[in-house]
Nucleic acid binder design. Structure first.
Length: 268
DNA sequence: CGGAGCGCCTGGAAGC
DNA sequence: TGCTTCCAGGCGCTCC
């Protein structure tokens, strides 16, 4: 499930595979992943251009292009739940879920591979890029403590909804939110605006630390010492205290927490 | 404002 | 065995 750490990994794939390389050929195997652009136009607009330095904001990956010394359109990528970006040799066999392939030089091919097609690719000019970024909160891996406090301040909903609201804070998904809340010993249904200073400090610190380790791993690592390493077990126990983990739904999402480490408090 | 519920999409697993 | 149903969770949408 691509969240900030996974998308950061895809940014690195894009950077090492495609940056500064000319786009020789664009092949769309399944136009179902294209949004607001046809396969024909995608090909016309990108073939002959070059990918430049990629960027990431939350779960969005931005692949700007140039050509003839002028800036070209930016390819925007969102991976939904099952999307990924892979760097192949251009002769490699096609995978059943390869949806779009960008053939570069030196025999490389960048492929957008996605089973469920919940999101996909957009082709954006500068103002559309700005609009997409403006709809996102600050990146969770870059947000300052002060900004973080402001985001939560006055927020009336529950904590988990706040953490996963991309327009508030960009990059945290369902898995990360559970991991961060478990690490910070905060119940998912705590009121976001009702945390004490000490709790907010802990939440910020643990969010940054979970993100750092996850970016290093390229995903939220299912380590035995992490909550994520136990969330799929029917009778999983908290790796910190051994209490049986609780499974429920919060804001329509499956949620796992430790009832001992993360007590529901008066505000929730 | 925010949360619940639905739909999009696919395929693996569970249920009958 | 084979069919149906559920579920995963990304996000956008409507409704309350």
């Amino acid at each position: 499930m691509p969240e900030l750490p996974d998308v950061e990994g895809f940014r690195k794939v894009l950077d090492s595979c495609a940056r500064d390389r000319p786009i020789r050929r664009v092949e769309v195997y399944d136009a179902g992943v294209l949004h607001g652009v046809t396969g024909d136009r995608l090909r016309r607009e990108l073939e002959g251009r070059r990918f430049t330095e990629p960027a990431r904001r939350g779960k969005w990956l931005l692949a700007p292009t140039d050509g003839d010394g002028t800036a070209g359109p930016t390819l925007l990528l969102h991976f939904g739940m099952t999307g990924r970006l892979v760097c192949c040799a251009s002769g490699d066999e096609r995978h059943a879920h390869d949806r779009v392939a960008f053939t570069l030089d030196a025999g490389r091919q960048l492929r957008f591979r996605d089973q469920r097609k919940l999101k996909g690719l957009w082709l954006a000019d500068a103002s559309e890029v700005a609009r997409t970024l403006d709809a996102q909160g600050p990146d969770a891996a870059a947000v300052s403590r002060g900004e973080f406090d402001e985001l939560l301040h006055g927020r009336r909903g529950i904590l988990k909804s706040a953490l996963t609201d991309q327009s508030l804070l960009a990059g945290v998904g369902n898995l990360l939110a559970d991991e961060i809340l478990w690490r910070a010993r905060l119940h998912p249904s705590r009121r976001a605006g009702a945390l004490t200073d000490a709790e907010r400090a802990r939440l910020y610190r643990d969010m940054r630390s979970v993100l750092r380790a996850s970016v290093r791993a390229g995903c939220v690592p299912p380590r035995r010492s992490w909550l994520t390493g136990h969330r799929d077990e029917a009778e999983g126990t908290c790796p910190r205290c051994g209490t049986p983990l609780r499974h429920g739904r919060t804001a329509g999402r499956s949620t796992v927490w430790c009832p001992h480490c993360q007590p529901a408090s008066p505000d929730s």
